[in-house]
Simulated assay, not measured.
Amino acid sequence: MVKNALQAQLLKAGLVDNKKAKKLSKQAVHEKRTGESNEAEIKAKIEQDQQQKMAKDHALEQGRKAVLQEKELKAAIMQMINQHKIRDTDGESTYQFIDDSKIKKVYINQQIYNALVAGSLVIARENCSYAFLPKPLADRINAKMEGFIIVNNSENNEQTTDEEDPYAAYVIPDDLMW
């Protein structure tokens, strides 16, 4: 026999069985008789659960904000690359470079080729193609986020030679055509 309407509904829904319903009703009667109640424990547990949920939600929100900021930064860099790239680069000279462990070849004019070898221009990744950018702009892009600049020959020009190297007098030019 069920004494509580809620217990009757739970039994009808199949969420509890007769044994569990009797146990709950006996427990309620015992709490009334002895005056013991777990209300403080239940409230503390609820409060703790709410704080954990808030902390979890806060961490998720911070993650979403970080992803959104990264997307915005990438979009801003792509816009900078698109606005400042050198447009007329077609020519007969070939320039080969490594991108993602693959050798890529671009056909450029001699003026762009000389600027690339000297280090005043760099090659940047622009979506699925490549763009030629001035060195100061490339430095600004690298300061914001790395990974867009593929070829930067100004770093190679500043290398020092080893004094004990027997071939130090024989410098290999960067613009050597094979």
Rank of each mutant, 00 (worst) to 15 (best):
I77D: 04
C128D: 14
N153F: 06
I81V: 06
I103E: 01
Q69K: 05
E72W: 01
L121Y: 11
M78I: 13
G35N: 04
A44V: 07
Q159H: 15
K85C: 10
Q111V: 12
V171R: 05
V2P: 07
D17F: 08
D139Y: 01
V29L: 12
L73E: 08
L176W: 11
Q27R: 15
G119I: 03
E164Y: 06
L24H: 07
I103D: 00
E158W: 11
A76P: 00
N18E: 15
D139N: 02
S129V: 10
K43W: 08
A13Y: 11
I42N: 10
Q62M: 09
P134Y: 02
T89Q: 00
E155S: 09
Q62G: 06
Q27A: 15
A66K: 11
N127D: 14
A118V: 13
Q83D: 12
R33N: 15
I108E: 02
E158P: 03
I172K: 10
D88K: 06
E126Q: 15
K22E: 10
I112P: 05
E36C: 06
D100E: 09
I77R: 02
A143W: 00
H30S: 12
K102D: 10
K56S: 12
L60I: 14
A5E: 13
E39D: 12
T89N: 09
S129Y: 13
M54W: 04
A143N: 05
Q111M: 11
F132V: 10
P166W: 02
T89L: 07
K135R: 09
K105T: 14
Y167E: 03
Y113C: 07
I86A: 04
L68Y: 12
P173Q: 14
L73T: 08
E39N: 09
I98C: 04
T160S: 10
I150W: 02
V122R: 03
G91S: 09
S93M: 13
M1I: 08
S129R: 10
E126C: 14
N109E: 05
E36N: 10
L73A: 08
I77K: 02
A143Q: 01
Y170N: 09
F148V: 03
F132I: 13
F148T: 03
K43N: 06
L6Y: 14
A76V: 05
E163Y: 00
K56W: 09
N152Q: 01
S101F: 09
Q159W: 12
Q50N: 08
G119Y: 03
A8V: 15
K135P: 03
D49Y: 04
K74S: 11
Q9L: 11
A131Q: 01
M54L: 02
A168G: 06
D99H: 12
A8N: 09
D99E: 11
E41A: 12
M54S: 04
N38G: 11
I77P: 01
L60R: 09
V67L: 09
A8P: 10
N127K: 15
I103M: 07
P136G: 04
E36S: 12
E146N: 14
S101P: 00
E146L: 11
Q62C: 08
G35C: 02
K85G: 05
K71L: 07
A168V: 08
K85R: 13
